[in-house]
Write a protein that binds this DNA or RNA. Structure first.
Length: 296
DNA sequence: AAAGCAAACAACCGCAATCTG
DNA sequence: TCAGATTGCGGTTGTTTGCTT
């Protein structure tokens, strides 16, 4: 019943890897490079499943891996990223050079999940079920209820239409009302040294809608983001809005709440409607006010 | 010293996403 | 376009290690 195994199990080694197996795998990958995991064991002469080889390489044998001694800074970053992203270990690991998703996951489950406030542990960490609950409790991965998440997409622009009492923000392209007139002024962006944008006014229009491009560099480390500030581009029509966004980001992104980036941390801005409501003094519903405009 | 227990961590498994022919 | 193959991710489990009694 069920799906067939990923590879034939007969005669394959399981359990801990030996030093010899490690050496064989490392040597093989040095020569042939990563990839082709399914056939790798046969070619390398290992009695292991391809998945097992991949895991062993990625988590332990790769030369650029740091292991153990997670620093307080890293720890803090893990906590914040987890609050932001939930149990998306690979994404979290991607922000911590040299750390693997498995290590971070283990570290979280054995150390951090016990320390973070109950509220968070329960809302975003299914594996926090480790608090005395049986291991067989197969909690599925559930995102924090207050985190909005989308498919990965390069989304950089948030449109705000103040004419719809601070809730007119746009819907995703698919759902945009036909009568919507995008008369926004356009705020251009000039990436600064942090890879962030420094919006500047390009064009104005009779409407006070505007477009802001956060343009976070895909390589931007969250550590940079946590302390980010927008430059408002001087006194202009949009200063107030800029300040609101700056306030939002420093209040919420900075603390890791109610905001999430896409899978590659590509330029994506997703604003939780409750948070936005609170600072826009609006009463929007999800989908009422937010648009992520795909730019690629 | 030994048994019991819990914590830590390495590895496995199933599923989903992505790739490829 | 689609089905099968492959890869990657995250939850779970098994084993080892260290502490306590």
């Amino acid at each position: 019943m069920g799906r067939s195994p990923c590879c034939a199990k007969e005669g394959l080694n399981k359990g801990a890897w030996t030093a010899l197996e490690d050496r064989v795998l490392s040597e093989y990958i040095k020569v042939h490079g990563e990839g082709g995991w399914r056939n790798l064991p046969k070619k390398a002469g290992l009695k292991r499943c391809g998945k097992s080889c991949r895991l062993r390489w990625l988590n332990y044998l790769r030369p650029d891996i740091k292991r153990g001694n997670i620093s307080p800074d890293e720890e803090e970053l893990i906590v914040r990223l987890h609050k932001l992203l939930g149990n998306r270990w690979s994404l979290i690991a991607g922000r911590l050079p040299g750390r693997t998703d498995n290590e971070i996951k283990n570290y979280w489950n054995t150390n951090l999940s016990k320390r973070v406030p109950d509220q968070e542990a329960h809302s975003s960490s299914p594996s926090s079920a480790g608090h005395g609950e049986p291991r067989s409790n197969k909690a599925k991965n559930v995102m924090s209820h207050n985190v909005v998440r989308t498919k990965a997409a390069k989304c950089t622009k948030v449109f705000i239409n103040p004419q719809l009492p601070r809730k007119g923000l746009l819907l995703a392209d698919d759902h945009k009302p036909e009568d919507y007139h995008r008369q926004q002024a356009v705020v251009d962006h000039q990436p600064d040294g942090n890879g962030l944008s420094s919006p500047s006014l390009l064009e104005n229009s009779s409407s006070s809608d505007f477009l802001m491009d956060f343009d976070m560099n895909s390589e931007l480390c969250l550590a940079n983001l946590l302390g980010l500030e927008f430059s408002s581009g001087g006194d202009n029509l949009f200063s107030e809005e800029m300040q609101l966004h700056q306030q939002y980001w420093s209040d919420n992104v900075g603390s890791g709440e109610d905001c999430v980036a896409d899978d590659q941390f590509q330029p994506t801005t997703i604003l939780n409607f409750q948070s936005l409501n609170s600072f826009l003094n609006a009463d929007a519903n999800q989908g009422d006010w937010l648009e992520l405009a795909e730019t690629s």
